[in-house]
Design a protein around this nucleic acid. Structure first.
Lengths: 157, 157
DNA sequence: CTCCTGTTGTTCGTATACGAACGAGTGTGG
DNA sequence: CCACACTCGTTCGTATACGAACAACAGGAG
């Protein structure tokens, strides 16, 4: 159901053109809904992962697994994080020995960030749970709706 | 693992139990996509609003406009914010004189948070721009897709 | 009334998130 | 070779975001 519907039901004040705008309802706005959906996903993530990693930290580990060692800023760009943000994330992963930093031989400004043995193991132990997080997050939707939602969501990036 | 590795190119049928799981791609996960979409919306919001208010602050002003004076925690619940978070938001709105706190006559624990004159004016000056933010955020989608996206997003709340 | 439970708002600690400014290094144009 | 623009990673300041713990108060059971 989505077309040029006439919808006589909600016509509270069909007034002339420039007249009454529909009221602004915060709970109808994309921004608010996106914020809440993201909030919910984070909560589900934490329920499933406990202290293993935050969503952001897991994203870094996943990208390093996918792409191998990367410079810090490059890693940040791949997962959409500010240099200032990725700095803290890498630092905390380093403190927990999940990640390593070696100077780049060619470019003295850079460090190559790479997974340690512990980092690889930690990631492998989390991947299944990460899949479960995605499933649980999308569980209010039917399978075809899930695919549609993901497709639309990608186009807002 | 025995059996014949038939390897049907891309059969619609999901592989049997122990077979290869599809690789985990961070950029396909709802969590990551939600985070990025929310990020983009925040950026659009800031472009349109400048220093007038943050998305969170605007949400508080909008809800106070919709519902009138509210206790701090109640306001927080309506816009999905922790008591610890709404505390800071109300405080900063108070420092900018957009909001006011009067003790609740019936319940000595509570304060009623309400818009000041300046708060009302500030909100009114922002509402149109907030509508523009929603439009711009959803602009990569066709109108019917926008409606569908919003409908699906609501069900993930 | 007293005790108990739950709510209200606060504070602390931690983790994103990003703008702005910075020193150090790189690469290009001249 | 030098000057200049750009990049890399860092730091500071500010604003969410939330768990945990807290004192003060509210409302009901006994």
């Amino acid at each position: 159901m989505a077309a040029k519907t006439k919808n006589p039901v909600q016509a509270a004040a069909p007034a002339p053109a420039a007249a009454t705008l529909p009221p602004y309802r915060l709970t109808e706005q994309v921004g608010h809904l996106l914020r809440r959906a993201h909030q919910r996903e984070s909560a589900i993530f934490q329920d499933n992962m406990g202290d293993a990693a935050t969503p952001t930290q897991f994203a870094a580990l996943a990208m390093l697994t996918e792409r191998g060692p990367l410079s810090q800023n490059h890693l940040g760009r791949l997962i959409a994080m500010d240099p200032a943000t990725i700095q803290g994330v890498v630092q905390r992963l380093g403190e927990r020995k999940l990640v390593d930093r070696v100077p780049d031989p060619v470019d003295k400004r850079r460090f190559l960030v790479r997974l340690t043995r512990r980092g690889v193991e930690a990631y492998e132990a989390m991947e299944d749970r990460a899949r479960a997080v995605t499933r649980e997050t999308l569980s209010p939707l039917e399978p075809d709706e899930q695919a549609q939602f993901i497709a639309l969501l990608k186009r807002l990036g």
